[in-house]
Measured scan of single mutants.
Amino acid sequence: TRVETATETAWISLVTALHLVLGLSAVLGLLLLRWQFPAHYRRLRHALW
């Protein structure tokens, strides 16, 4: 049971790290898009909202 718990903890930390990385890359990508294509971003936002 001790090994299982350790594996579970490792998986949880791995998944958390993955989610953090994905979230950060998504935010960075959005910022980059907004910085590179302001007109396109505004049009996209206008279409979405």
Rank of each mutant, 00 (worst) to 15 (best):
H46L: 07
G29E: 04
A6Q: 09
P38T: 06
R43G: 05
H40F: 11
E8S: 11
L30R: 01
A47R: 14
V21T: 11
R45L: 07
A47G: 07
G29A: 12
P38S: 10
S25W: 02
L48G: 01
V27R: 04
L14G: 06
R34P: 00
H46Y: 04
T7Q: 10
H19E: 09
R34C: 13
L32Y: 09
A6V: 03
L28G: 11
G23L: 15
L22H: 00
H40V: 08
V21H: 01
V21C: 09
R45T: 10
A6I: 03
L20E: 04
Y41R: 03
R45P: 01
A10S: 10
L14M: 13
V15P: 01
R45I: 08
A47L: 07
P38M: 13
T16L: 14
A39N: 12
V3K: 00
H40R: 10
L44V: 11
G23V: 15
F37Y: 10
L20S: 07
R43Q: 11
W35Y: 15
R2K: 14
V21A: 13
R2F: 13
P38Q: 05
S13F: 15
G23D: 04
L22F: 11
R42K: 13
L18S: 03
W49D: 00
S25K: 01
L31P: 03
L31G: 04
V15M: 15
W35G: 06
A39C: 06
Y41S: 07
L31I: 14
F37I: 06
A47K: 09
L30I: 12
I12R: 07
G23F: 15
Y41K: 01
R42D: 08
V3S: 01
S25T: 10
L18I: 12
I12S: 09
T9Q: 10
E8D: 15
W49M: 00
A26V: 12
S25E: 02
L20M: 09
Q36P: 06
T7Y: 07
A39T: 13
G29F: 12
E4D: 06
T7C: 01
T5V: 03
T7R: 13
L24T: 02
F37S: 03
T9N: 09
S25G: 12
E8V: 04
H19K: 04
R2M: 15
H46S: 09
T16H: 04
G29V: 14
S13I: 13
L30A: 11
L22A: 10
H40T: 11
L32M: 15
S13T: 14
R45A: 08
W49P: 03
F37A: 07
V27E: 01
E4P: 04
R45W: 06
L14I: 13
A6M: 11
A39E: 14
Q36S: 09
A10N: 08
L20K: 01
L22E: 02
L20D: 03
A26Y: 04
S25L: 12
P38R: 12
R42G: 09
V3I: 13
H46T: 08
T5S: 01
R42M: 07
H19S: 15
L30S: 05
T16M: 14
E4R: 06
E8H: 09
L32H: 02
R2N: 07
W35C: 10
T5G: 01
P38V: 06
S25I: 10
L14C: 13
W35F: 15
L48H: 02
T5Q: 00
L33E: 01
S25V: 14
L14T: 11
Q36N: 13
L22V: 13
G23M: 10
G23A: 14
H19A: 15
R42L: 08
A47T: 08
I12F: 08
R42W: 07
T1K: 10
W49R: 02
W49C: 00
W49K: 08
T16N: 04
T1D: 05
P38H: 07
P38W: 04
G29Q: 00
H19Y: 13
L18F: 08
H19N: 14
V3N: 00
L18N: 02
E8C: 03
E8Y: 05
A39F: 07
R34W: 02
L32W: 12
R45S: 07
T16K: 06
L24R: 05
E4F: 10
A17C: 12
V27D: 01
Q36M: 13
S13L: 15
V21S: 15
L31F: 12
V3T: 01
L20A: 13
S25C: 11
R43C: 08
V15W: 06
G23C: 14
W49A: 06
A47V: 09
S13Q: 15
R34Q: 02
A6W: 05
W11E: 04
A26F: 10
H40N: 08
A10P: 09
V27F: 12
F37M: 05
I12E: 03
V15Q: 08
R34L: 10
L44A: 09
T1S: 10
A10E: 14
A39I: 06
H46Q: 12
W11K: 08
L18W: 12
L18H: 03
L44W: 07
W35I: 14
L28M: 11
T16D: 00
T9S: 11
W49Y: 15
W35L: 15
G23R: 01
R43T: 11
A26W: 08
T9C: 06
L18A: 06
R2A: 12
L44E: 02
S25Q: 03
T1H: 09
V3F: 02
P38N: 07
H46I: 02
H46C: 14
V21D: 05
V15R: 04
R45N: 03
I12Q: 08
G23E: 03
T16F: 11
A39M: 08
A17D: 04
L33Y: 12
Q36F: 07
A10L: 11
L31V: 13
R43F: 04
E8T: 13
H46P: 00
T5F: 04
W11P: 04
L14R: 06
L20W: 06
V27S: 08
A10C: 00
W11V: 10
A6L: 06
L22Q: 03
L33S: 01
W11Y: 10
Q36T: 13
L28K: 03
Y41T: 07
T1Q: 12
R45Q: 07
T5A: 00
L33D: 01
R43Y: 05
L48V: 07
L24K: 01
A47S: 07
W11H: 11
T1F: 11
T7F: 06
L22M: 08
V3R: 01
L31A: 14
T9I: 12
L30E: 02
T1C: 07
L44K: 04
L28T: 09
T16Y: 07
Y41D: 03
L30T: 07
L14E: 03
A26G: 12
L14P: 05
G29M: 11
Y41W: 15
L28D: 00
L44G: 03
L33N: 00
H40S: 12
H46E: 10
E8Q: 08
T5H: 00
W49T: 01
H46M: 05
L24G: 07
L31R: 02
